[in-house]
Amino acid sequence: MTAATRENTPVALEGNGVEVRMQEAGGDMTVAFIHLPEGTDMAPAFKGLKDDLCQCPHWGYLLKGRIRMRTPSGEEIYEAGQAYYWSPGHAPEALEDSDLVEYSPTAEFTEVIDHVKAQG
């Protein structure tokens, strides 16, 4: 794969306004187009994972919105226009409607998405 768009990337997870579209990008990495509506708190969906946090690293860019990222060492606010790296051990909360593009290791990201789907 050399390029992906939101429109041609399959939906892997959706519900309550959350949408995650994922496609393998090569080199054991996956690209994801993510929409989190304002007020979305992913922490409850991560219960049962190690430390009840997402354990997948993500490299990405926040296209729109604001995200509060909570980690064991504290929290940080990310805003539209910022590129980021989120190491394993985090839980995001959308402070505004947010759209992100992320690259993540396929195996770890799939494990997290499968866990979130199993939560209900």
Rank of each mutant, 00 (worst) to 15 (best):
R6A: 11
P44E: 12
P57K: 11
D114V: 09
Y84F: 14
M1T: 14
E111W: 02
T71P: 03
D41E: 10
E7N: 13
F109R: 15
P105C: 06
A94K: 08
E14S: 15
M1H: 14
Q23I: 01
E93D: 06
V20C: 03
H58C: 11
A4I: 07
W59H: 12
Y103P: 12
T30C: 00
V116L: 03
N8W: 01
D114P: 00
D97W: 02
M29K: 10
Y78S: 12
Y84E: 03
M29Y: 02
M1E: 09
N8C: 10
Y78K: 14
T2Y: 08
Q55G: 11
A4C: 12
G74A: 10
S98N: 09
V11W: 02
Y84R: 13
S87T: 07
K64D: 03
A83R: 06
T106W: 01
E24C: 12
V18G: 11
L53P: 01
D52E: 11
I113F: 00
A94T: 10
A91D: 05
E111M: 04
D99F: 04
A80R: 08
P72A: 03
A80K: 08
T40G: 13
E19F: 04
P92N: 03
D28C: 12
D114W: 02
A45V: 11
E19M: 15
K64A: 04
L95K: 13
F46P: 02
E7V: 10
T5F: 01
A25Y: 00
E76M: 09
K50I: 08
P105D: 07
Y61G: 05
G74N: 09
P57T: 09
A25F: 02
Y103A: 13
K47E: 13
S87K: 14
A107V: 11
H35F: 05
V31Y: 00
H115I: 05
F33N: 10
E14L: 05
P105Q: 05
G60W: 04
A32P: 03
Q55K: 05
V20L: 01
W59I: 15
A3K: 15
K64G: 03
G65H: 02
P44V: 07
